[in-house]
Design a protein around this nucleic acid. Structure first.
Lengths: 239, 239
DNA sequence: GCTAGTTTCAAACAAACGTTTGAACTCCTT
DNA sequence: AAGGAGTTCAAACGTTTGTTTGAAACTAGC
């Protein structure tokens, strides 16, 4: 009846073997992505991971801490890569300011690397990240704003050098739009069908997707500053 | 003991008086916005509305149907206004194609009207809409894609006329980015603090917010088409 | 002023939730 | 081989969830 105890270990020293902890993380990553935080139960996660229900609380403490662990696992290295890459670009450019495209590529390339390196996990994570960005739960928003704080500050100063004519507050807004469009695009993948019915084969190709997003955002960042009240004027005319 | 029955009716014919149904809708709009769909219980909604718990199921059938009713109440008229306004602009322009700014304003102005007309409900709804756009729940995504279908199709042809040089699939992507940035910006309001710490007083001013978003998006829409593989090249260089 | 139809109400329903518990089991050290 | 820390397990905990129920309250029409 006992499950063949004479088999001592099939892969005895494989450190990267699917431990209970990583099995939970992987399953949670996929399910949180698919259904969101609230709609995903620990029972669903542990069943998908093939582990006992109590293992989730044992290894991570609570459901919220598990969610944060899922995010940290990949977000932390990715943001570090982004800052490192930006620094590399700046060092290569010497005293000259970087172009917007170059700075944007420092944001996008680590995301692309993540999407292609790990076969399934990477793409799942980017989608999960995009959705977490829009989640109203305070503990998610607080966690993300803390995780992103350094990276955003770093890129803001880089963009400020690239766009010296732009007022500081205007730059902050545009940076906000950039992060929004990026998150939303990553989270998409089915709202996407609503607008772009063409070439469904490329819908899964994150690289082509970001190669279209980058020029769009670069142009937006470099747009001339509008005189305030122009939309207000438009509104008055048509009301 | 009875609540002053001799007062026949204070506002006897006020059709817009707070009926149970609209009280539930108003409370649900605010609470769904604040906590999301899954994290908002019917008990929370009915308590906030000051009505009995069973009233929600009695008037709307289920929680999902209540959510859809909340969305339809304002989304339907807003999208109709958007299409009407676009038609007005096109009629005024005669045979000449509209500018991107003009088309974008046809998208934004009805949203602005909604945000300012009804004191609190409007802003709540825009935020709720932005969050619903990122919600993974299938019934929400299906509902929204159906609600937006006609409007998106209408604006796509308008943009196609304004940007005849743009390939059709490229336009679809950019339209996707526009909707994403718009939704995300409307949903923001606290992720916002993460990036734009300046002028917190204007953080609540949707008009100024959209007046900054519109030029950003117009520039993105009019960006030159990039040769494919440029991001791929960037990636290869830095890897 | 009674009746038929609509709405409100308190109470209960089964199901699912996150978390805890204490015993069983595994594996490494001594 | 024994012991002990680390891990897994089935079972149960108390809440909370969306929804249903049947009686009470209300609002008309005749």
């Amino acid at each position: 009846m006992s499950p063949t105890p004479q088999v001592k270990r099939l892969q005895p020293v494989d450190v990267s073997a699917q431990t209970t902890k990583t099995r939970i993380l992987d399953a949670a990553e996929e399910l949180f992505m698919e259904h969101g935080f609230e709609a995903t139960s620990l029972r669903l996660i542990t069943t998908a991971a093939g582990v006992n229900l109590a293992a989730a609380n044992y290894h991570f403490g609570s459901k919220e801490e598990l969610f944060q662990a899922v995010l940290t696992r990949r977000l932390d290295p990715m943001n570090r890569q982004r800052m490192d890459l930006l620094e590399t670009f700046e060092a290569a450019a010497g005293s000259k300011p970087l172009t917007c495209d170059k700075i944007l590529s420092a944001m996008f390339i680590p995301a692309l690397k993540l999407a292609r390196d790990k076969e399934t996990g990477g793409k799942n994570f980017l989608r999960l990240l995009g959705r977490a960005y829009a989640d109203p739960a305070p503990f998610i928003r607080d966690f993300l704003s803390q995780q992103y704080h350094d990276m955003i500050a770093r890129f803001r100063t880089a963009f400020a050098k690239a766009l010296p004519h732009l007022p500081k507050d205007e730059l902050s807004w545009r940076l906000h739009f950039v992060m929004g469009a990026l998150s939303y695009t990553l989270a998409g993948s089915d709202v996407l069908k609503m607008i772009a019915q063409y070439q469904p084969a490329e819908a899964d190709n994150d690289e082509l997707l970001l190669s279209r997003l980058a020029p769009f955002l670069a142009a937006g960042l470099m747009a001339p500053v509008t005189t305030s009240g122009s939309v207000h004027r438009m509104f008055q005319e048509s009301a």
